[in-house]
């Protein structure tokens, strides 16, 4: 394989097994000597590092610029307040009162552009941290970790994905849901693996994810986790929509228990290691067919 491929592992519903699939797929590929990076994009609750032991390489902060108002220069004209689209400036003109609500600020810089009196300067504001760990000579784990209390993980996720461009295979462990953090993650992917469970909640969220990916023009396949628990509706849906079932992971207390301890099934069991290698080959074929 010469070409590069970016695969996002996602799910509408939380807790379906994104991290289980991502970490095991990554592990199987790195053991096979492939050039692979795993980006933990679930910046609100990153967990991949609990399953993979590596050497810390380096880290960097994700910052945004937020305004600081020099009250001595401010004329209380209110133009910055008018420019702010996020209600991040508390302004009472008559009372000559102005304050930046830092939690609401998105760092867009509009208020600085608005101010004609040089009363607004900017300072750095920490949004999150990106850390890189080397797992083996050819493989890297990149963790996006949002700072607690920050309103959105999106800037941290974008910075993490950007730093992963060197590997031939990039795996993105996506945040749950179908809102902005999910879109930002899958936007850069060539192929999306949706992990679901065969329950009404799982199916409902799967349908929403599939519809979203369709509107983005992304190719996807599905992994059913905890198969055997629940009913058959998810399989009927996949058949009807002609979405490939990439893999089925049975509900097994042994798998659940190993996972709870941070043990990778692809390390414990050669059969599973093989299955995850086959999973990659299947995805690669699917993507190859769909992109030709």
């Amino acid at each position: 394989m010469n070409s590069k491929i970016t695969i996002a592992i996602a799910s509408g519903k939380g807790g379906t097994g994104k991290t289980f699939i991502s970490t095991n797929l990554f592990n199987a590929l790195q053991k096979a000597g492939k050039s692979v990076s795993l980006v933990d994009c679930d910046a609100e609750e990153p967990n991949d590092r609990e399953f993979l032991v590596g050497n810390f390489q380096h880290s960097f902060d994700v910052l945004q610029k937020i305004p600081v108002i020099d009250q001595s220069k401010c004329t209380f004209c209110g133009k910055c307040n008018e420019y702010c689209n996020y209600n991040a400036i508390f302004f009472l003109g008559e009372q000559r009162m102005i304050r930046i609500l830092e939690d609401h600020c998105h760092g867009c810089g509009a208020c600085s552009v608005a101010c004609e009196y040089g009363a607004i300067t900017e300072k750095d504001d920490l949004l999150g941290t990106i850390a890189e760990y080397s797992i083996s000579p050819n493989s890297l784990l990149i963790e996006a970790r949002m700072k607690v209390g920050v309103h959105s993980p999106v800037p941290t996720i974008k910075a993490a994905i950007k730093s992963a461009s060197e590997a031939k295979i990039v795996l993105l462990d996506s945040p749950p849901g179908t809102s902005c953090p999910f879109i930002q993650t899958v936007a850069t992917a060539d192929y999306v693996v949706l992990v679901t469970e065969p329950t009404p909640f799982g199916l409902s969220d799967l349908i929403q994810s599939v519809e979203t990916l369709k509107s983005l023009g992304k190719h996807c396949g599905v992994i059913v986790n905890r198969a055997g628990l629940g009913n058959n509706e998810v399989y009927d849906y996949l058949q009807k929509e002609k979405i490939p079932l990439l893999m089925s992971v049975p509900f097994d207390k042994k798998i659940a228990s190993a996972y709870s301890k941070g043990i990778l099934v692809s390390n414990e069991n050669a059969e599973w290691e093989l299955k995850f290698n086959q999973l990659f080959n299947t995805i690669h074929e699917q993507y190859g067919n769909s992109s030709n």
Binding site: E45, N47, E50, V148, G149, S260, K261, G262
Partner: peptide, 17 residues
């Protein structure tokens, strides 16, 4: 929460919030 490493890790961050 659930009795997994991930569960404990996420619980800590949630309690922090």
């Amino acid at each position: 929460t659930e009795p997994t490493l991930s569960g404990l890790h996420d619980l800590k961050r949630t309690i922090e919030v």
